[in-house]
Simulated scan of single mutants.
Amino acid sequence: MIEKPTPIDTEVGAQTFEDLLHTVEEMDTPDGFKAELIRGKIVVSPWSKLRYFLPMESLKEQLKPHAPDGHATDYAPFLFSFPAAGRAYGPDLFVVDRSIFQGDGRHGDAGALALVAEFTSVSTKDADWCEKLQVYGQLVPLYLVVDMQDREITCFSDPSPSGYRSHRTVSFGKPLTVPAPFDCEIDTTDF
Rank of each mutant, 00 (worst) to 15 (best):
S157P: 03
Y89F: 15
L59I: 04
A117Q: 06
K64P: 00
P55N: 06
P91V: 09
D31V: 09
C155S: 11
C130H: 14
K132R: 14
D104M: 07
A114Y: 01
W47Q: 11
L113Q: 03
S121P: 14
S160D: 13
Q62C: 03
D128K: 11
D69I: 12
D150H: 13
D97Q: 10
S48G: 15
G70R: 13
D150V: 07
G40I: 09
D147H: 05
P55S: 08
W47M: 15
P83N: 04
A127F: 15
A112I: 05
A88I: 10
Y52N: 13
P30I: 12
D31K: 13
S48T: 05
F156M: 05
R87V: 14
T120D: 03
V95E: 00
Q138R: 15
S99E: 10
G111V: 00
L144S: 05
F78I: 12
F156W: 04
S160Y: 12
K41I: 10
T120W: 10
H107G: 07
I42F: 04
P77W: 05
E57M: 13
F101A: 02
L54G: 06
K60C: 03
H71I: 05
A85M: 06
R39A: 13
Y89H: 13
G163Q: 08
K64H: 04
L139P: 00
C130N: 14
Y136P: 09
A67M: 00
P30R: 07
E61Y: 05
P141S: 02
K132C: 12
D158T: 14
G111F: 07
F82V: 03
D109C: 08
S81T: 12
V96L: 02
L93C: 03
P161F: 01
D31N: 12
H167C: 10
Q62I: 01
P55H: 05
E61A: 04
G105V: 03
P161Q: 01
A76T: 13
D97E: 06
G40W: 10
D109F: 13
V145H: 05
R151V: 11
A67L: 00
A84D: 15
S48F: 14
K125S: 10
P30D: 15
S166C: 11
E57K: 13
G137D: 08
P77T: 10
V170S: 13
F156T: 00
G163K: 06
V44G: 07
E57I: 06
L59H: 08
A35P: 00
L93H: 08
P159R: 15
L63P: 01
W129H: 13
S45Q: 07
A114K: 04
F101K: 05
G105C: 09
Q102S: 09
G137V: 15
D104A: 05
F78Y: 08
F82A: 11
V43K: 01
A35E: 03
Y143G: 01
R39I: 08
F82H: 07
S162H: 05
P68H: 12
F80W: 11
G32R: 08
F94T: 02
H66T: 00
D97Y: 01
R51D: 14
M56V: 04
P161A: 11
K132D: 03
Q138P: 02
I38F: 02
G137T: 04
A127P: 00
G40N: 09
K49I: 14
R87M: 11
P30F: 12
Q149S: 10
E36Q: 09
F78C: 08
G105T: 10
